[in-house]
Amino acid sequence: MIKYLKKYCDILAPSGMEDALRTQIIKDIKDSGCTYNTDSVGNLIVFKQGKNRRNKKVLLSAHMDEVGFMITKIDDDGYLRFNMVGGIDRRVVSGKRIVFCESGIQGLVSSKSIHMQTPEERGKCEPLTEMYIDIGATSREQASKYVSIGDCAAFMPNYTELGNGLICSKAIDDRFGCAVLVAMINSQLEYDTYFAFNTCEEVGCDGAKVVAHFLQPDIVIALESTTAGDVAGIPENKCACKVGNGAVLSIMDRSTIYSKELLELAVSAAEEKNIKWQYKNVIAGGNEAGVYQRAAAGAKVLAISAPTRYIHSQSNIAALADMEAVAKLSAALNERSFD
């Protein structure tokens, strides 16, 4: 799983620009004996036969896309104005390195230096309209040779190990889910299983809407990164979940109340196999499970997540042990017939 994770984290795939990642995933699964197809919005749907059939159609889902940046205007002096693709707090972008997807042009998200800020401005983060991307171009004409309006960029690939068994990278959300699915597809499965690698989750779970309609699954398990708030100064009851405490099971978030039955199955599978797990202790966030639950004739849904600090920034931090726990737990759960 880890060998896939590093490779996937380093690929650029902001929402709507998932092609490079999808190509890599196909390379990694095509010899596994699965069948797969890519749909009209770029989702990759995979079917892998198990040793046995089951009555329920079971889907494991992860999203390929990451948050990023899109050029909205090119200034006369060659600076690029931009907006976020997906939900990025503007306070995590200033000074950060980015790369444009197709051209490979590198840039910097920039804003006024501290010396140029007025006393009232000091300490504040300016609105997005006062930030810009610098690629080194000095005129609109020159910049236009390399980039154009609508081009997308992602944070610069920066996968690194940190502290005790932690990974720090852009896009652990949700390359980690993709890595778990690819590892599963390359393993021997107990039951027939569908897998979806979706596009455009960060801009409204659009890929999942199409997959849900196409597959009409009975049971969906979404593998995600969920925000871990266990940072200095945050009280325990507001942490949501903690890095190092195992796979995260959500009871409820802003889009879904999860299937009680699936949750009980997950907890019993975790206890049985001695897999570390934790509940998410705040009602926040949301993911593709919410889409699957309400699409077509509806499905029972569950989310198993890796606790991840600083999602939607250049420095997502997650623990290898937690990601292994999610992989084990989803594999254990997928050994059930769900009858």
Partner: peptide, 14 residues
């Protein structure tokens, strides 16, 4: 020399 990351406040607490 070790690496560190400046923490940011989780969105759900903002």
């Amino acid at each position: 020399t070790i690496k560190g990351v400046f923490a940011s406040k989780p969105p759900h607490l903002q």
